[in-house]
């Protein structure tokens, strides 16, 4: 089975209950088709980089799941029809995944608080990277300018 990741944008003007109903429906679609949802992450309201269906903002949500290709087809078909979803993108995350092993691993992670500490470290490291990144960008900009001068 493959592991997929579907990032979709729900209509930002939906009332809370309609939105949860939509999310529940999509999640049920996966489980009904024999899939396993590894994670469901609501990013919340975000500004879109460009206007989609006359909306400037969108409610992002990320589905991380393992399922058969048929399920993905069905999920995408439903999303295309449903007006409450304004955009979606499905990406294969892992070509071949052992669902039972993944489930066990997730349960272990949920039970132990240790991985969270790890995550914290990772986040701190990321922040450091970003700082260095900013410096790099400055250098790049300079170079670009130089080229233009030449």
């Amino acid at each position: 089975m493959k592991r997929y990741e579907t990032l979709f944008i729900a209509d930002p003007d939906l009332p809370e209950d309609t939105r949860t109903a939509l999310f529940d429906r999509l999640r049920e679609l996966i489980t009904a088709g024999g899939g396993f949802i590894a994670a469901f992450d609501e990013w919340g309201l975000r500004k879109l980089a460009y206007i989609v269906k006359r909306k400037k903002r969108g409610y992002y949500a990320l589905l991380d799941y393992c399922a058969a290709g048929k399920v993905v087809q069905e999920l995408e078909r439903v999303m295309r029809i449903d007006d409450r979803v304004i955009r979606f993108l499905t990406v294969v995350k892992d070509e071949d995944v052992n669902v039972d092993a993944l489930r066990e691993e997730l349960e272990r992670k949920a039970a132990q608080p240790e991985p969270e500490a790890e995550l914290g470290e990772g986040a701190a490291k990321d922040a450091g990277d970003e700082e260095s990144g900013v410096e790099d960008m400055d250098a790049e900009d300079d170079e670009e300018m130089e080229e233009e001068e030449n």
């Binding site: 990032l7 990320l62 990772g122 990144g133 790099d136 170079e143 130089e146 080229e147 001068e149 030449n150």
Partner: peptide
């Protein structure tokens, strides 16, 4: 007019294995 200033550029993703490329 000006000599192009060359600075050895290193791939940021090779230099730092910690950052992954993710569309999200």
């Amino acid at each position: 007019k000006k000599r192009v200033f060359h600075r050895r550029k290193v791939c940021r993703f090779c230099a730092d294995k910690g950052i992954t490329i993710d569309f999200k």
